[in-house]
Every structure is written in C-alpha cells, then in structure tokens.
Simulated scan of single mutants.
Amino acid sequence: MPRVGLSPDLLTSAAAELADDVGFPQVTLSALARRFGVQTASLYAHVADLDALRARVAVRALAELADRLAEALAGRSGRDALAALAQAQREYAVEHPGRWQATRHPLDAAAARASAGPRLADLNRAVLRGYDLPESEQVHAVRLLGATIHGYLDLQQSGSFDHSTPDADTSWERAVDALDTLLRHWPTREKDRA
C-alpha cells in the first residue's frame, strides 16, 4: 500500500534537491527514504527502481534547462544568442549542480524522445541560424557546442580551474569568442565544396 503523501512527483522533486545537495551520483533510494523518514521499500510503490528515479530527475532537469534556454534566447541572434545559450547553461549548472549532472543521465530511446532533449537540440540549432552553416553541418556544430559547454562546466564544477590564472570567467568568455569565430568560419571538407 502506498504511503500517504508520497508520489512519483514528490519523490522526483526531493531527488532533484538531493542531487543538488550531494551530487547526482549520490542519489539513492535509501538516501531519499531517509529524507522522508520511511523505509526504502515504501518508495517502490512510487518508482520502479533507482534508475527509474534517476531518469525522472534527468527528464525534469532537461525540461528546466530547455525552459531557461528558450527564455534566454528570445529575440537574440548571432554571438549574442550563442553567449546567452552558454550563460544560461552555466547559471543552471551553478544553481543546480546535481540536476546539471543529471542532464547527461542515459535515457532509453522512448524516454529520450519524450524528454526535452530534442527541444534542447532545436534551441541549439536556433542559435546556429545566426551563422552561415550548411544544414549538413548543423549536427556537428550542435555536438561541438554541447561538448565544449558541458566539458568546460564539468571541469569548473570539479574545481579544475580553482588554482590557476586567469580566472575561469575570463577563460569562459574566450571560449565563447572562440566558438563564435569557429561558427562564423566553419570548415567544410574539400569533397563537400565540389
């Protein structure tokens, strides 16, 4: 019998908060049960298992991030849109470090399609409309944006930039400048030019 007051949405919210407090990899059913003062077994009436709970947190984080990016990108184009895209992700990663980690949790194909992941890809492609990239190159550019932004933020979250100069903010701006330059001068292969 389900415990009164618990629900999948309540558990997802609590797991997202727990992820921000202790890190997404440390989100466990037993840690969540402790937060509610219940036995771990009582959670199984609401979530199938730990992976299902983590997937719910990932789906929520992706939706939150997509909403942030859509708001940040409204009315912007070119470098301004690129900087807004990057900064909105950086702010989300700082404010919600565990949820940021959750955005890379592997989802099964159906959950991935139903998540805000495709919307995030569309938002990235919207930024690319401000650059003269052939459609055939856009997937590569979206992947580059994701790898650069996620990689930088993951390194910053882990403290990799804490003991060096210049500060991480300066390098962040240089990274955005470099991405802008690359997107304006996107390389094409010789065979694609023919």
Rank of each mutant, 00 (worst) to 15 (best):
R104K: 04
R104I: 09
R104P: 04
P106T: 15
L107V: 11
L107Q: 08
L107C: 08
D108I: 00
D108A: 00
A110H: 12
A110V: 15
A112I: 00
A112H: 11
A112P: 04
A112Q: 11
R113V: 15
A114E: 15
S115W: 06
S115Y: 06
G117C: 05
P118A: 06
P118D: 09
R119V: 12
A121Q: 12
A121D: 14
D122N: 04
L123A: 07
L123H: 02
N124E: 14
N124L: 07
R125H: 03
R125E: 15
V127I: 15
V127Y: 13
V127N: 10
L128G: 04
R129Y: 05
R129P: 00
R129L: 10
R129F: 00
G130Q: 07
G130E: 09
G130C: 10
G130V: 12
Y131M: 06
D132T: 12
D132A: 12
D132V: 13
L133M: 01
L133G: 09
P134F: 03
E135A: 10
E135Y: 00
S136E: 14
S136Q: 09
S136K: 00
E137M: 03
E137Y: 06
E137G: 07
V139M: 06
V139E: 13
V139H: 13
V139A: 14
A141Q: 07
A141W: 06
V142K: 05
V142G: 08
R143K: 00
R143P: 00
R143F: 00
L144M: 14
L144W: 05
L145Q: 12
L145F: 08
L145V: 02
L145C: 05
G146P: 02
G146M: 03
A147F: 07
T148V: 15
T148G: 06
H150W: 04
H150D: 15
H150P: 00
G151R: 04
G151F: 03
Y152L: 02
Y152A: 04
Y152W: 13
Y152E: 07
D154P: 01
D154E: 13
D154Y: 01
L155C: 10
Q156P: 01
Q157M: 00
Q157I: 00
S158M: 07
G159Q: 07
G159Y: 04
G159F: 08
S160A: 13
